[in-house]
Design a protein around this nucleic acid. Structure first.
Lengths: 241, 241
DNA sequence: TCTTGAACCTGACGCAACGTTAGGTTCTAT
DNA sequence: ATAGAACCTAACGTTGCGTCAGGTTCAAGA
């Protein structure tokens, strides 16, 4: 049953590779037939097949053809080291992809909260997310995410309406020129601080970063109708609490 | 401070891209300067820069330049859908990479247990791992791994020496032609079964798969000096317990 | 033995997203 | 005016093959 001379098509079927792939391996000097017929057809022996199996084993580890070639040629190479390096590479790649996934998730939840998403809004959201990532560390973002996930959808809705009510109230005072140290205003400022604590989990660093973000980037879609003047006004009121 | 005419080098510095990259985006029709000077130099306006920012935002989500181009051109596209699809792609990629990492880890622990690894041994190990993956499902492998991780390095060593002692003892009986149903041998067979249970976590499916693996692949490096005859002998003894 | 379709051969281009020369023109500052 | 920096286009290189294109050889039936 076992013959010792295989044609390229047979070898292809045997291994699941394509003929073109075997041609390619030949071209780059990774794997060639040990014999060639007079007419130029490649003829593979059983030991050729074993070599190919080894190559495929290395490929399963995600090594490049170039690396595999080196592995097969130089036996002076420290293969354990190669495996280690490959593990590191893969680990790094996984990390990157996971970060990417988190980004996508964040955008997606933001999208979900908006009823109707125009294309411009999407672009804005993405841009804001990029800004946000710039102002907060990964750890901070994870903490905040964790924090907000503690709330039910119902509670989230409630908080959002609290925010807009509060901001509207503060704006009203500002437009009436109420001084920031007036009790009415400092009362609102206290509410403001407690609301902020709800998503910052009491982390002062997060609060600071958020302040920097908001004051550097007024007029972003995450601001629930804030602007710089209002922001200033609130800060003054907070100072007077 | 704000000018409305930027040269390509300035834009490159501003965005962290290279000039070549901007040239490339121009070539593929993704992003071009709104103006070109008489001498052929590209001149970018502020609104060009905004457009570029949007492009970079999309790039951060891992979309291809082609996809980004479509996003910018057709606003009929369902961008939420695009985000969803991208999430799926990334998830899949993460899964693949994690499987790869598991493979590498398995090889690495096998490497670690052997003192001295010749290149041929490494290749054999990899081939065996590929076989092993063929015989056991991912879930089964995870279970086994979990099981072995319960043991300390000390215990593992002990188990390994138990295996070789046991196998040596059984082989001795076999070579003395002791019948498989002799009490001495069935006693050894009991020990054998209990040892197997220690790594299979009592999962009969795993044991069955292992049996299939060992009987299909005698003479593999994981066999601690087993061969087919010995395997046969043990099976007969187990049947007589 | 002739014929024909399957299998084989060697190029050579294509893809994705640029990096990297190469060779030449234009800006800009002295 | 001149030199060096910055700009331009063109074109090849990278990775691992897929996919023609155009031609030769093999193998089986008439």
């Amino acid at each position: 049953m076992d013959k010792n001379a295989w044609k390229i098509g047979e070898l292809a079927k045997l291994t699941g590779l394509t003929v073109r792939t075997l041609h390619h391996y030949d071209q780059i000097g990774l794997f060639s037939a040990s014999q060639v017929s007079d007419s130029g057809h490649r003829i593979y022996s059983d030991s050729d097949i074993r070599k190919l199996q080894q190559i495929l084993s290395f490929k399963q580890l995600g090594l490049s053809l170039e690396e595999i070639k080196e592995m097969m040629e130089k036996q002076s190479l420290d293969r354990v080291q190669v495996i280690k390096m490959q593990m590191q590479r893969v680990k790094k790649e996984i990390q990157l992809q996971e970060e990417l996934y988190t980004r996508l998730e964040n955008i997606y939840t933001l999208l979900d909260s908006e009823k109707d998403v125009s294309s411009n809004q999407l672009i804005q959201l993405i841009e804001v997310m990029n800004m946000v990532e710039h102002y907060f560390s990964k750890e901070q973002l994870a903490k905040m995410k964790n924090q907000t996930e503690q709330f039910s959808a119902e509670e989230m809705k409630q908080m959002e309406s609290q925010w807009s009510t509060l901001i509207a109230a503060i704006r009203a005072e500002m437009e009436k020129n109420t001084p920031p140290d007036h009790p009415k205003v400092t009362e609102l400022a206290k509410t403001w601080k407690s609301l902020i604590n709800q998503f910052s989990a009491g982390d002062q660093e997060i609060v600071k970063s958020a302040e920097r973000f908001h004051s550097d980037n007024p007029n972003n879609p995450l601001q629930y109708g804030m602007d710089e003047a209002l922001y200033q006004y609130i800060n003054e009121a907070i100072a007077k609490i």
